[in-house]
Design a protein around this nucleic acid. Sequence first.
DNA 1: AACATATCGGACCAAATCAGTCCTGTAAAT
DNA 2: ATTTACAGGACTGATTTGGTCCGATATGTT
Lengths: 146, 146
Amino acid sequence: MLRISKLTDYGIVLLVHFAQRTGGTTLTAREMAEATELPLPVVSKMLKSLASADLLASQRGSRGGYQLAREPEAVSVAEIIEALEGPIVLMECVPDDGVCEQASHCGLRTPWQRINRAIQTTLTQVSLAELAADMPPHHQSTLAIA
Amino acid sequence: MLRISKLTDYGIVLLVHFAQRTGGTTLTAREMAEATELPLPVVSKMLKSLASADLLASQRGSRGGYQLAREPEAVSVAEIIEALEGPIVLMECVPDDGVCEQASHCGLRTPWQRINRAIQTTLTQVSLAELAADMPPHHQSTLAIA
DNA sequence: AACATATCGGACCAAATCAGTCCTGTAAAT
DNA sequence: ATTTACAGGACTGATTTGGTCCGATATGTT
């Protein structure tokens, strides 16, 4: 459980790679594919996702490419994961009839809320910069939120 | 992300149901299916899983059934999730050649370790009893670690 | 203007996983 | 013996995921 998808993992690897280049260097999908040794179509797809999530800034045309939209310190793991796989929520109540009757006090559904909040918090506290500092360059996968 | 599978969710619902019955009442798969309004085969399957994970104790034959193997206070959410979907680990390193060269200092791969530990900790701190106390009886799903 | 280089935004497909069913065997009680 | 239940799989359909590909658009160069 808590499994991160392979694609999300690739996305993280790509971001880490960007973070490890000093300065706002612009890199093309092809360059990233070579650097990470991942198939170009996949890299391309993920870069697009990351760009549309505003984690990367893109520039079209010749001399185009991607670069980090922000400083690595200002990007949290929570953001990355949320961008690539939707909200980080552990439980949601879905009663028999599809409508939660307890909806009112449900927002405070304590134990799950506690869990969600805790996970959210830790994920928010770790920045891309920390990942980059810690991760040996060249890993093409870090995978497996199991 | 952090998605819990539907089956695991059912498993939790079943456990909560047991926890909400006072005393170590024995219930059959059929009774559980009726109580939770979930299809019998599914309930049966999950009860078997829970039993083989030693979260439930089973008794065969007529007058058989299942009951909690332990007090609800002594069962953590971490345990339940691990039993039903394997280890709760967020990241594992898998470099190009399949063998992690940094294996030595890799065990301390800080940021991910930190994240994993935090998640593990919160999940361990919440008990089945707390879930049961907080969850209205009858929910047949609590789902969606999104 | 024409061309080359890149991203953009999809559609698309194969493979793996998940959810759910079903069947045969075995244990226990009457 | 017969009935009641769990045990342990195999099996299938649906969904999700991983990965590919293509046409359109934007930008710089000649």
